[in-house]
Computed example of a mutant assay.
Amino acid sequence: MDKVANNKGFTIIELLVALVIFSIAMLGLIPGVINVIKINKKNEIRDKATRLLSQKKSELYQQSFDNFSSINNFTATINYDNHTFVYTYWVDNESASLKKTILNLTYQDPYSKDNRTITSIIYLRK
């Protein structure tokens, strides 16, 4: 009998078995990848909300002290990048020379459909 002297490499069966094992391992990673994508999307929307709240705070800081009584109990809806954000802010007169402004920005979590709220407080002195 003649034997093949140079028997290097893998057979087709060995390659198919290795491919099946690799595929099963990759299937196990899919739920983790999907979870990472969801968390990334949630963080992206939260960052947009934080950025919008920061912009509104900057606008309010530019108001004069006396104008703050005229913006009491204000609500506005903003559509930004296919998401709806709702501002609510009101002024508490702590004293004649101190005003406390409470800002809320509410948005909907894209996966749980729960409303999330970010709150910020501004104190203004005369």
Score class of each variant (00 low, 15 high):
26 M>H: 08
57 K>C: 09
94 E>C: 11
56 K>Y: 01
114 D>H: 15
50 T>V: 09
17 V>K: 08
118 I>R: 01
45 I>V: 09
79 N>Q: 13
6 N>M: 12
101 T>A: 09
39 I>Q: 12
74 F>G: 00
103 L>P: 01
101 T>M: 10
88 T>M: 03
53 L>S: 02
9 G>I: 02
64 S>E: 12
40 N>Y: 14
81 D>T: 00
97 S>D: 10
69 S>C: 08
101 T>R: 08
66 D>P: 03
62 Q>M: 13
52 L>A: 00
107 Y>I: 00
31 P>H: 10
51 R>F: 13
80 Y>M: 10
78 I>S: 03
93 N>F: 11
30 I>G: 01
17 V>Y: 07
62 Q>C: 11
112 S>I: 13
22 F>L: 15
26 M>C: 13
38 K>A: 09
54 S>Q: 06
24 I>N: 10
91 V>Q: 11
27 L>M: 15
101 T>L: 12
104 N>P: 02
108 Q>H: 04
61 Y>V: 05
30 I>W: 02
54 S>K: 06
108 Q>N: 13
50 T>F: 11
82 N>H: 05
75 T>M: 01
51 R>L: 12
76 A>S: 04
124 L>T: 13
95 S>M: 03
21 I>H: 13
110 P>W: 05
38 K>D: 09
11 T>V: 05
7 N>G: 11
118 I>T: 01
10 F>Q: 11
92 D>V: 08
29 L>Q: 07
85 F>S: 03
118 I>G: 01
94 E>D: 14
68 F>M: 15
35 N>P: 06
8 K>H: 11
111 Y>D: 02
38 K>M: 09
42 K>V: 06
17 V>L: 12
114 D>F: 14
66 D>V: 14
107 Y>K: 00
91 V>L: 11
73 N>D: 00
35 N>G: 13
36 V>H: 10
47 D>Q: 12
66 D>T: 15
29 L>D: 04
83 H>D: 13
18 A>S: 15
41 K>I: 08
105 L>Y: 03
77 T>P: 00
119 T>R: 12
82 N>W: 01
112 S>R: 15
56 K>W: 01
57 K>P: 05
117 T>C: 04
125 R>Y: 11
102 I>A: 07
32 G>S: 09
13 I>W: 14
112 S>H: 08
31 P>D: 08
92 D>I: 07
66 D>S: 15
112 S>Y: 06
45 I>P: 05
28 G>Y: 06
102 I>L: 09
